[in-house]
């Protein structure tokens, strides 16, 4: 327990340090209630998708196709919106089904075809993006249009009740359910087992391929929910939805202490990581710095965190080994 608690404290410390830094640099422009509400709102989609990506990383995998799944889902709904009179819930349902399907495809490629996770999802990233273009809404001349989706019964999903945007409520639901799922269900435990020691998991009767397929399908589900809130907030769907997005949930998970070697981390950590990433973006904006610095800082932070984790893990393993050898069973 101590090791994971310490890692959680480090994530929180990073977040706090960032808040203090931006407060010191830009004062009340950064440090005010409205801005914090904005930050939480902006972090929500990353955190929702982060729930799924966290599970993928716990199985020692990765998903690089999340942004593209969002785009396909968004464009599916845009088509239904533009060409049918189906009710909004029905449209959303169709979007979610497509998202689940995309996730299942990833899961099949990884679980059954044994393609390494990062290669398989790198490929589906371009496949899903291409599919988005293929089903994009076009005008009479065949030029791709952005499809407005501003009917109030849909756009309301981008609004807030009091201080709480719907997306924030959804995010809370996802994080709580995700955490409970991982920690309190058999399947959750199996996800950790698959990531930490697939051989042992198999010996214990766990179907590794099945667990992976379920996990990537969950990622697809999270992406489709993310796409719903993103398009509702934009009140339109374009082919660019989720472009370069895949970076965010992975970065959030890494900062939040989900180890890429698999078997450890949790959804709450990813939430902290998502808040960290968005606070960074927000602060850079408030400082009126070139937004490009975000990319540099994000990349540097990921590498630093990963380096730290690698070093820290090596150290802890060594200590555990030495302790084990010295004290023996009687410890």
């Amino acid at each position: 327990m101590k090791q994971t608690t310490l890692r959680r404290l480090i994530s929180l410390g990073l977040l706090l340090a960032l808040v203090i830094l931006f407060t010191a640099l830009s004062g009340s422009r950064f440090l005010n209630a409205n801005n914090f509400i904005d930050i939480v709102r902006d972090a929500s989609v990353t955190a929702i998708i982060g729930v799924g990506v966290t599970m993928a990383i716990i199985t020692a995998g990765i998903d690089l196709s999340t942004g593209s799944i969002m785009a396909v889902v968004g464009m599916t709904m845009a088509n239904i919106y533009a060409y049918t009179l189906w009710p909004i819930p029905c449209m959303i349902l169709c979007g979610i089904i497509v998202g689940l399907g995309c996730g299942l495809i990833n899961g099949y490629i990884i679980g059954k075809l044994h393609v390494p996770e990062f290669i398989g999802t790198l490929a589906t990233m371009s496949i899903f993006r291409a599919l988005t273009y293929m089903i994009a809404i076009r005008d009479a001349n065949g030029v791709i249009q952005s499809q407005p989706m501003n009917i109030s019964s849909y756009a309301v999903l981008g609004y807030a009740v009091g201080y709480f945007y719907f997306v924030v409520i959804a995010m809370i639901v996802f994080v709580v359910c995700g955490q409970i799922f991982l920690k309190y269900t058999r399947l959750g435990t199996e996800i950790y087992a698959v990531g930490a020691n697939p051989k042992a998991a198999t010996l214990s009767g766990i179907d590794v391929a099945k667990v992976k397929m379920i996990v990537y399908t969950i990622v697809g589900f999270c992406c489709s929910v993310g796409a719903v809130f993103t398009t509702a907030r934009l009140q339109s769907a374009t082919t660019a939805v989720g472009q370069d997005f895949e970076f965010n949930p992975i970065a959030a998970a890494v900062v939040g202490g989900v180890a890429l070697s698999g078997g450890s981390g949790d959804v709450v950590g990813t939430l902290i990581g998502a808040l960290f990433m968005v606070t960074l973006e927000n602060g850079v904006r408030k400082l009126e710095m070139n937004t490009a610095y975000q990319y540099v800082i994000k990349g540097v932070i990921i590498i630093l965190v990963v380096m730290f984790d690698a070093w820290y893990k090596g150290r802890m393993d060594r200590i555990a080994r030495e302790k084990g050898a010295k004290e023996g069973v009687s410890a």
Partner: peptide, 27 residues
């Protein structure tokens, strides 16, 4: 000989892996 425990789980989780006692759907 090659140990098949899952390091990030607790002792109890390892012992009952795949056979966890449940209340409803939850462990």
């Amino acid at each position: 000989q090659e140990l098949s425990v899952i390091p990030p789980l607790t002792v109890a989780q390892n012992v009952y892996l795949g056979r966890e006692p449940r209340k409803g759907k939850f462990i």
